[in-house]
Write a protein that binds this DNA or RNA. Structure first.
Lengths: 254, 254
DNA sequence: ACAAAAGTGTTGTGTTTACACCCATGA
DNA sequence: TCATGGGTGTAAACACAACACTTTTGT
C-alpha cells in the first residue's frame, strides 16, 4: 500500500461554528479561470474536502485535509454519511472544472461526509493567497451564515443539508451542543443555540429548569461584566461528571 | 463511466432476521482450497458483500450483491457506517485468501456497511452449489444465531458489532422494529423481540400499556388459533397512521 | 385438572407544559 | 429613568416504574 491519492475516494468536512448569535458553516471558494490568462470563468462555494491517500484512514484524511485547507488543527470530527450517487459530479460546471484542473471527469468518486462543531471564538482560520494558488485548491476559507449561502460545488448543498439534519438529531441525544459553546457560557447562550439549530423557540423557564438540573452542567460563581443589563451567570459542561453518570438521559429538549 | 467493478469500494450487508424466538444474522461461508486440488485449507464466515460497479450507487450495489449471493430481493437496506481502516484486510488469512482468488492483497478497499431487518418467515434463501462455485464466491447462505458465531472474514466481526449497536439505537427512535415482525404479531412477540435485541427483560404490563396507546399500532379482532394456552390478540403496524402523526414520539421503551 | 401463556389496574413519583412579573446593570 | 436581557415558581396533566392475580385454551 502506498501514499498516493486514491482517485475514487474523497472526504468533505462540514464544520459548524457558533458565534453566540448565529450558526455558521466553514466554506471555501472554488475558482475556475481561463486556461491561459487570469480571466475568471466562475466562482462558487465548496466544503473543505479532497481525496484520501491510500495509506490513510478516512478520519485521518479528513483531519489532514481540513488542516491543509483552513489551518484548523486536531478538532473533533465524525463521519455522518457517504455520498455515492454515480452522477454526483455530473453537472456541467463540475465537469468543466474537473477537466480544467486535469482530472478525468468520468472517474467515479464517492465521498465521506465528516462533521464537526466548534466555538468560533476559539479558532482562527489561516488565509491562503487566492491569486497564487492553482484552481484545484480551495480559496479563502470563511464562515458563512447558514441561510445566505450561494451556489455550491458538486453535491455539496446536499451534503450540507444532510449534516444539518444529522446535527439536529444528534443534539437531542448526545452532549455535542457544548462543542459549539465557549468553555463558560450563559443560559441564554445555550438556549439561543438550540433555537437556531432547531429553528424554533423554547420556553425560558422550563429550559433553565432542565439546564440547572443536569448534574454535568455546573454553575459557576462568575458573572458577565460590562453588559448593559443584569449580568448573567456562567455555566460550564463537565465531561467528567457526564462520563461518570452516562446513564442519566440527556434531555435539554423534548 | 463504465460498468466495471471498482476495486477500492465494496459493500457488506448485515441482515438481521427474527423467527419469533431469537435474533439471527445472515452469513455466508468463505472457503479456501489448495490451488490445484480439492483440499480445503480453511473455512470461515462472511457477511454478504462484494465490490460495487462504477456506475452504481452504493445502495443499488448492495441490493444487487445481496440478491446475487442469497436470493433476497428488494428489501429495505440502510447504510450505517463505513469501514476504512487501511489495515482492515491485513490479517494473514485474509491476505492468503485474496492472493488465492487472484486479487492484489495490497489494494486499499473501504467498505460501506448496510443493514436490514426482515421477518424470517417471509423470505427464502436460495441455496447455491458449494462445490461448483469458485472460492471467491460466498457459499451456503444461512441464518446464524447471534451468540454462536464462529470466526469471521476480514473485519466482519467488527462490522456486525457496529450494526447491532446501530440497531439498538435505531429501535429507540424509529419504528424499524416492525420490519422484523410478521404483518400480524402479538404483544408478547414484539416484547420478546425488544428483549432479545436489547438484552434485558421488560415489564409486561407497562409494555402493553404503551403498545396499546400508540395510535399506529392497531389492534385486530383476530386471535391465535391452536395454541395450548389463552390465544393472543394480533396487532399490526399502520405506516399510514404513523406517517400522518410523525410528531408523536416513538417510545415503546424508555 | 393441569400447564402455559394472555391479559389486566392502581398508586406513588417524577416530568412536562403553560404562563407573567421583578431585578440588576450601563447608558 | 429607561432599555435590555436576567432571573424566578406554581399548578395541572401526563408518563413512568413497580407490582400479582385471573383467564382461556389444549392436553
Amino acid at each position: 500500500m502506498n501514499t498516493n491519492f486514491n482517485e475514487h475516494i474523497s472526504v468533505d468536512c462540514v464544520i459548524f461554528g457558533y458565534d453566540l448569535k448565529s450558526l455558521k458553516v466553514l466554506l471555501l471558494e472554488r475558482h475556475l479561470h481561463e486556461p491561459d490568462g487570469k480571466e475568471l470563468i466562475f466562482m462558487d462555494l465548496t466544503l473543505p474536502g479532497n481525496h484520501i491517500r491510500n495509506n490513510e484512514d478516512l478520519e485521518t484524511a479528513a483531519q489532514r485535509i481540513l488542516f491543509e485547507l483552513t489551518g484548523l488543527n486536531d478538532i473533533y470530527l465524525e463521519q455522518f454519511a457517504v455520498f455515492s450517487d454515480p452522477d454526483r459530479l455530473n453537472n456541467p460546471k463540475d465537469q468543466q472544472w474537473l477537466t480544467a484542473i486535469g482530472k478525468d471527469p468520468e472517474t467515479r468518486v464517492i465521498t465521506a461526509g465528516f462533521f464537526s462543531l466548534i466555538p468560533l471564538e476559539k479558532y482562527y482560520l489561516h488565509q491562503n493567497d487566492k491569486d497564487s494558488l492553482p484552481d484545484w485548491y480551495g480559496k479563502n476559507p470563511c464562515w458563512h451564515e447558514l441561510n445566505t449561502i450561494g451556489s455550491m460545488a458538486f453535491d455539496h448543498a446536499r451534503v450540507l443539508e444532510a449534516a444539518l439534519q444529522f446535527l439536529r438529531e444528534k443534539i437531542m441525544s448526545k452532549p455535542v451542543i457544548f462543542e459549539l459553546l465557549p468553555e463558560k457560557f450563559t443560559a441564554s447562550q445555550i438556549q439561543n443555540l438550540y433555537e437556531v439549530i432547531l429553528g424554533k423557540t423554547l420556553d425560558k423557564r422550563n429550559f433553565r429548569k432542565k439546564l440547572t438540573n443536569l448534574e454535568f452542567v455546573v454553575s459557576l460563581n462568575e458573572k458577565q461584566e460590562g453588559v448593559a443589563h443584569k449580568p448573567a451567570r456562567f455555566y460550564m459542561f463537565s465531561r467528567d461528571v457526564y462520563d461518570r453518570k452516562k446513564k442519566e438521559k440527556f434531555t435539554l429538549i423534548t
